[in-house]
Every structure is written in C-alpha cells, then in structure tokens.
Amino acid sequence: MGNLAIYATKGFEYLLILGFLALFTAFYLYFTSQRFEKVTAAISSSVDQLVDWFRVPENILYHQGHTWIRPEKSSPGLVRVGMDDFALKMAGPMRLRNNPTVGAIIRQGEKSWSLQDGEKSVDMLAPISGEVVEVNIALLAELEKTGNNIEALDADPYGKGWLLKVIPENFERERKGLLSGDLAKKWMEEVVKQLRQRINPELGAVMQDGGIPVAGMAKNIDAEEWDLLLREFFLT
C-alpha cells in the first residue's frame, strides 16, 4: 500500500509538472506570436513608407536600371526618356554627364549617360533602343545654372524632368523588357526590401528619423559599398 501511495503521489507531481509546462508553452507561444506580429507589422509599415517615398506613376514604362520611357500621345512613334525617382533620390546632388545629343543612337540596357559627384559616378542604362531626335533644352539650361546638379529634376522627374525624345527601333519587342502598372509597383517593393537589407548602421547617416533614406545618400556611403549598390540597383 505504501508503494502505491508513493506512485500515486509521484504521478500527481508529474501531472502538475506537465500541466505547468503546457501552460508555460501556451503563454510563450502567445507572447512570441504577438511580438512577431508587431515586428512584421513594423517591417511592413516601413516598407510601405519607403515605397510611397519613391514615386511610381502608372503611365510610365520602367527599365530595371531605373530609367523610363513614356510614349508621346501627340506624336505616335516617339517616346520620352528619363531617370526614375529612385535614381534621383539615391544620387542626390550629382551632376549630369555625357547626355546624348540629337542624332545619337542609344541601345536598351547599354550605358547612355552618367551622373557624377567627385569620385562617385553612376552609369545610367538606356531603357529603349533608338535615335535621339530631341533633348530637353529647357531642362539642360536649368541644370547649367546649377552646374548640372540633377536635384532640379527631382521636383518633376516624370514630367518636366525628361531628358530625351527618341524614335524607338523596335518598340513592341523592347517594351516586353519594361515594367508598368502593378508589376512596376511590385518591382519597387522588392527594390525597397533590398535597399533596407543593404542599409545598416555601418553605412553611415543614410536614414532619416522614421526609416526614410536621406536624399542623396550616395555621399554618405563609402566607395566600396557604393560600387556594390550600383551593381545591385543600377545593373552597372
């Protein structure tokens, strides 16, 4: 009988221990899931905030090297060419260099003009192949007043900030390599996620309060890291 009493007592103790472990596990999973949901929500909110910071109009066709085209409604067979908002905010107060002139031939995915600030530069890829038939003289005149500082483009990069007008060689074929609408927004979301992974305390002061990058973050990033960013985001 004594042994039976001992076994009964031990069994009760085991049940208490198992019950405690089950209760502890339940509380742990609950609080962990709550914390995970908060972290996930914070990350999602931060990404949304960044995506909103980079303008992605729906009436534009985007090249993944952060240039764009927009067909001219008044002149069928003609497109405007420029740099997207991401490129301008990344580069900041860089200067426009080697802008193609009238008569020049540009090739989709090839270097067509560049941005430069001291030792740092960005080669911009043409979003379409074709002949340049017009350059934005008004914009170039405005840039000349500021030493070709491209910050003037940031106010209206998809409107007055266009650089070239081009007659495409094969618009229907090459447009398949460009992004627009929801697909362009999804692409920018992925770009933002990659950017957040790249930006860390070691890169310097590249973020404002609230997690928004400083416009012209290039000047705050060392040369080696800048080269990595160029390959990843500008495909050069």
Score class of each variant (00 low, 15 high):
Arg196Gly: 01
Gly204Ala: 09
Ala155Glu: 12
Pro168Ile: 07
Val214Asn: 12
Arg107Leu: 12
Lys10Asp: 14
Glu169Tyr: 13
Glu190Lys: 15
Leu115His: 05
Ile137Arg: 15
Lys186Met: 13
Ile6His: 11
Asn98Met: 13
Ile106Ser: 06
Val166Tyr: 08
Tyr28Trp: 09
Ala91Glu: 00
Trp226Lys: 03
Lys73Pro: 03
Lys160His: 08
Leu229Arg: 02
Ala141Arg: 12
Asn136His: 04
Lys193Met: 09
Glu190Ser: 15
Asn149Cys: 09
Tyr30Phe: 10
Met83His: 02
Leu61Ser: 13
Asp154Val: 01
Ala8Thr: 12
Ala223Ser: 12
Arg196Met: 15
Leu140Gly: 01
Ser44Lys: 11
Leu50His: 08
Gln108Cys: 11
Pro57Leu: 02
Glu134Ile: 05
Ser46Cys: 13
Asn99Lys: 04
Pro100Arg: 10
Leu96Ile: 06
Lys160Ile: 01
Trp113His: 13
Gly92Met: 12
Asn148His: 07
Pro157Val: 00
Leu164Gly: 04
Gly109Gln: 03
Gly159Phe: 06
His63Leu: 08
Ile43Gln: 08
Val122Gly: 01
Leu143Asp: 09
Glu174Asn: 11
Arg198Tyr: 15
Tyr7His: 05
His63Glu: 12
Ile199Glu: 04
Leu15Ala: 13
Leu29Tyr: 10
Ser129Trp: 10
Glu72Leu: 11
Leu16Arg: 08
Gly177Lys: 03
Gln208Lys: 09
Leu61Gly: 03
Lys193Gly: 06
Ser180Met: 08
Leu29Arg: 09
Ile60Ala: 02
